Computed example of a mutant assay.
Amino acid sequence: MTAKLYGVGLGPGDPDLMSVKANRLVRNTRDIAFFRKAGRSGRACKIVEGMMPEDAAIFAMEYPVTTEIPLTDPRYNEVLSAFYADCTAHLEALVRSGRDTVVLCEGDPFFYGSFMHLYTRLKDRIPVEVVPAITGMSAAWTASGAPITWGDDILSTVMGTLSEDALTRAMTEADALVVMKIGRNLPKVRRALAAAGKADRAVLVKYASMEGQEVCRLADCDAETLPYFSIILVHGQGRRP
């Protein structure tokens, strides 16, 4: 089999932060796939706007659910599993027919990305190559204007979807923090930060490296929910010369 499936990391959102290899693959591959929410154009597609070949064949993989069903509901995994099975069947057919195919991945493909679910299903069936990228959290701490870690600081990445107790434990044990998947979990995240004694150091970054980027102290934000591209940081204060 000569064709290959590429999971191409696009980086945090600024096209200038894409790797040379990612740029080359997007510009020279005719079959392009990407994830998006139903009814939306898709952030990944927007990042590479003007780069894709004019005759590119587009395969938009539209999530059947996002927040409509709670994560704890058994139907959530059932619906998504069926969705990924359909996507992998389509992508496998393209590659087996001899067509290189690029899957556009926001951020890095192996960092909390949907491409992971395609990769685990396809890696033993067809050739798959992953192209790494700058993560959204790296762009966020760069936008904050301060290093996220010093010396021996322990950095933890935690999801706002965790229970409040789990969040509090992780936040208490870490020296530096990246909090993702916040959205409507913001009040819970605020309480956990306060319980961990880190609320006064928390920084909020929205749309890091993208149009509309905002950076502020979390304490100065009075919102009850946050847009998808939002990250909360707590910078480490560890050893330095």
Rank of each mutant, 00 (worst) to 15 (best):
L218G: 11
L17I: 01
I47Y: 14
P187E: 10
I134A: 12
Q213M: 14
C87F: 10
D14V: 02
T157C: 12
W150K: 15
M52V: 15
V234R: 07
R125I: 04
E164A: 15
R24K: 10
R96W: 00
R125E: 09
A57I: 08
S138C: 13
D86T: 02
F35Q: 03
N185W: 02
G98K: 02
V130F: 04
A139S: 09
A196T: 08
T29A: 05
N28P: 00
D100H: 13
D220N: 06
D220C: 10
V128S: 05
G42K: 00
Y63S: 11
Y112T: 01
A195K: 13
K21N: 07
V205A: 10
L218W: 03
L118D: 01
S138R: 01
M1Q: 15
R240I: 11
G160P: 08
T2E: 13
Y6I: 00
H117M: 07
Y228N: 04
A85C: 08
M159D: 09
D86M: 07
D55L: 00
K206Q: 15
G145W: 10
I32N: 06
G7A: 14
D73T: 03
A93Y: 08
M51D: 04
D108P: 02
F35S: 09
T161V: 14
G39Y: 12
V215I: 08
G212L: 03
K4N: 07
T72W: 04
A166T: 01
P53F: 11
V26Q: 10
C105M: 06
V203I: 14
L80S: 10
A192I: 01
Y6T: 12
F34G: 03
K37Q: 10
V95T: 06
N185F: 01
A85M: 03
A223T: 09
D16I: 00
V130K: 03
D108Y: 00
P53T: 03
P74Q: 09
